[in-house]
């Protein structure tokens, strides 16, 4: 603005908008992977796809993380741990369910006695990314969708996050 007008300017906005903008531009996910989807997730973090440009930097502690990407098959043994990790995260916290397994059980839906048929039975999910496993582009699409949701552009209310 200073360049445009030659003098220092004032931007008028709402506190909510600033917070949402800050929030959506620094989504820090938890360093957490489960199965083959985690390999794609690692590829997404790496230099070829570089999600750092969206402010997405994996953090090693749930207390520093805003987002948990459930990237893979959720077994019942893991489900208790995922729930605990989610509960340890500070609000506001978001969940991306990545891949068929964590969306609905995937190929294990019928005979996988050990698989939770959808991570939304344990924790509330914000964005579902389909694929088996999804390409990094798809996961980036999911992250962008989450940004839209945080800034309120997707027309989605926070309140429709419920455990099924």
């Amino acid at each position: 603005m200073a360049e445009k007008t030659g003098e220092a300017g004032v931007i008028l906005t709402r506190v909510d908008d600033v917070l949402q903008w800050a929030n959506s531009s620094s989504i820090w996910p938890l360093s957490f992977g489960l199965a083959c989807c985690a390999i794609e997730m690692m590829g997404t973090y790496a230099s070829s796809f570089d999600v750092d440009r969206f402010g997405v930097i994996p953090r090693a502690s749930p207390r520093q993380a805003d987002l948990i990407i459930i990237s893979g098959t959720v077994t019942f043994k893991m489900a208790d741990r995922i729930k605990r990790l989610y509960e340890q995260m500070a609000e506001p916290k978001y969940v991306i369910s990545m891949g068929s397994c964590s969306n609905c059980g995937g190929p294990y839906w019928e005979h996988g006695y050990h698989v939770v048929k959808g991570v939304d039975r344990i924790i509330p999910v914000d964005v579902y990314v389909p694929g088996c496993p999804p390409r990094p582009e798809a996961l980036i699409g999911g992250i962008l969708k989450l940004q839209e949701k945080i800034t309120g552009k997707a027309g989605l209310e926070q309140s429709n996050r419920d455990v099924k």
Partner: peptide, 13 residues
């Protein structure tokens, strides 16, 4: 036969 619930979560699809 898989159990109905595990820690309150439904096991079947």
């Amino acid at each position: 036969v898989p159990q109905e619930l595990y820690h309150g979560v439904k096991v079947k699809f």
